[in-house]
Write a protein that binds this DNA or RNA. Structure first.
Lengths: 223, 223
DNA sequence: GTCAACCATATTGTATACAATTATTGCGTT
DNA sequence: AACGCAATAATTGTATACAATATGGTTGAC
């Protein structure tokens, strides 16, 4: 149980930033926020440090904290790295995956199938998360798994937007099947390629992403 | 100019941790350190936050800050990821590199040659850094470049140990030449493979690394 | 003698007060 | 009228004081 006020505030601010409740370039006023959260400036400043470390805000010395939403370019760059990290996870997992891992992955695929049938986007989203996180740890490299998880978390709001495109759920599920199949056969390069294509923003997906980005509050110009 | 006491303290502690002046598992006493640095606990705590974010210490709620040196396993894991990140930088750079980048890279190779002739390890180390950072930005993906730089910085103390192995300088230089050559020709996969092998800890390099790790103060058991 | 519960102590987390730096506004000069 | 400088106000950075939590030792019971 986290009894630290600072941690709660960090999560709260994180949410406000990724949902777009806090606009890009906006300055976070310590005194104003401390009144809003009903606490002093101290825990707020600690939360700022953590947010700055994960890149959600920029901390300029003696000037304050500023919200920094990724630009479209930065977003594409992040997806480019994410694709490669996942591909690497897959390549390692093809050699190191355990039967328990495979069984758990299979479970998520089944759950995803049901979600698609029920057209339950939230459920699919949840199971999709499980699939990818299982894959990260199946890499057998806990540092890699951690890095992948961090970036995955940072891309969370954009992935949600993507999954809402028509037909994307079915396509995503089919790709999961291909990945799992190659993984079971131990075909490292096939797994890597399938994952890279699954995650990468390319072709039509780029247009979808761009459209949803421009429509979202995150795209607001900097102050 | 950084007039923040917290930043200075962070750098100072960072140095003490990576050099092994602070042993693994050691608890960082806020009051003791604040007296030592001649300041209050506030900037120290801010420094702790930053160090925890980069993984050098662990911050347990209501219990304090503990130094966390990577285990041999974690180190190998980090090198595994570093190799892949650099390989990806190279693959992208093969398509996106500019003539100015190539010229700058060529310069570092020349400087490295001179350093090897003079047997100047410090100079070689410095030019080696330049080579790799140039490569990161040549990837044309600034997010990737940033991530690569971060991990590169974290592996710094271990790389220093590695370069001290006899004959490693010449071997490293030769590899730089191969990488640059493939880069000029635009052979993406050659660049990637050469970089992966250049960075990866495998074969004899693993033994060298393990030996230097065991000999270093970083390998001390946790308290 | 051992284990558990409780109290004392020490240490972290938070609030507030103060210092230092930056931004702003107004005035004076060109 | 526009630019530059200076004083003032606002905001961040730091110090200190206080509150909350965890640890360790002691005491009591079984």
């Amino acid at each position: 149980m986290t009894s630290r006020r600072a941690d709660i505030i960090r999560e709260s601010l994180e949410q406000m930033i990724v949902t777009g409740a806090l606009a890009n370039g906006e300055r976070l006023d310590e005194t104003a926020l401390s009144e809003r959260f009903g606490c002093s400036r101290t825990p707020l400043r600690e939360a700022f440090q953590a947010l700055a470390a994960s890149g959600l805000i920029e901390l300029l010395p003696h000037r304050g904290a500023f919200v920094r939403h990724p630009s479209l370019t930065q977003m594409v760059e992040m997806f480019e790295v994410m694709a490669e990290l996942e591909a690497f996870c897959g390549r390692l997992a093809a050699r190191r995956v355990t039967n328990a891992d495979l069984a758990a992955l299979q479970e998520t695929v089944v759950a995803c199938e049901e979600a698609v049938r029920a057209n339950d986007h939230d459920c699919y989203y949840h199971e999709n998360e499980r699939f990818h996180h299982l894959l990260y740890s199946a890499s057998g490299n806990s540092f890699l798994a951690d890095q992948a998880s961090r970036l995955h978390a940072r891309l969370k709001p954009f992935r949600r937007l993507q999954l809402r495109v028509r037909g994307r759920l079915e396509q995503s599920l089919a790709e999961h099947r291909v990945i799992l199949d190659a993984l079971e056969k131990g075909h490292a390069e096939e797994v890597a390629t399938a994952l890279r294509d699954h995650v990468a923003v390319q072709g039509g997906k780029f247009n979808d992403l761009m459209a949803s980005y421009n429509a979202s509050p995150l795209s607001a110009q900097r102050a």
